[in-house]
Design a protein around this nucleic acid. Structure first.
Lengths: 114, 114
DNA sequence: TTGAGATGTGACTGTTTGGTCACCTAAGTT
DNA sequence: AACTTAGGTGACCAAACAGTCACATCTCAA
């Protein structure tokens, strides 16, 4: 398995640290590795670098070399594509109406969120 | 990290087999484990069961016991929630305009997006 | 109540992944 | 040139994960 394409994006988004990293870029775009590393004290610069590399492989982050620094920019396009191919596929049709359906569908616990 | 909530959904969606499984439920909802396992010849029933368990933990699949069988239904709500919280957050605003990011990015540092 | 079909469980294995570190290169600064 | 600062690489380790198997349970039908 692994249709190669959107797979990278899904895998990249699977990690909470990576999502937080994207969030940090959303707040302030074009940051350097070290700048980002300072905002994540729980991790070393290398950990951040690795995550950024994964995000870059998935095209969720676009980089730009500026002398000896490397600027990181958020690229929302892959996310928009996933939204297109995937979410509108079956989430959109039901979306609103479905919220209470699953409760009554099972008529009992079904362990879903409270 | 791991904000506990949407994290499960992201992690569940990260696997291509799991997405294929959701697809199979989209085509024909309410299938049993063995029925699904037959559609995935590359895997044993146990593998399929494990994946279904993960999808169920993320509430992407809702189950219903029917005698000695267990029926699996797709639940698009978590996906819709992610779309809401995440995709509309920064994918929607730019979406189309962002395709030529590298051009404007090379302009200068772009601290706090124009 | 015997048997067969459907699902469940716990242990086990190989691979992937998150994270760190010692070291290295490139580009500025003085 | 000497020094500093930003980034990069490869090896390495521990934890998580995909996948399988032997075995157990539950339920229906004769």
């Amino acid at each position: 398995m692994g249709e190669g394409d959107g797979d990278l994006v899904f895998k990249a988004l699977a990690d909470a640290t990576r999502r937080a990293l994207l969030d940090a870029l959303f707040v302030a775009d074009g940051q350097t590795v070290t700048a980002l590393a300072e905002r994540f004290p729980t991790m070393t610069r290398f950990g951040v670098m690795k995550h950024l590399g994964i995000l870059e492989s998935a095209s969720l982050v676009v980089t730009l070399r500026r002398g000896r620094t490397k600027l990181h920019f958020l690229n929302p396009v892959p996310i928009a594509q996933i939204a297109d191919r995937w979410i509108s596929k079956y989430a959109a049709p039901f979306a609103g109406a479905l919220v209470d359906l699953d409760q009554q569908a099972s008529g009992h616990r079904a362990e879903s969120r409270s």
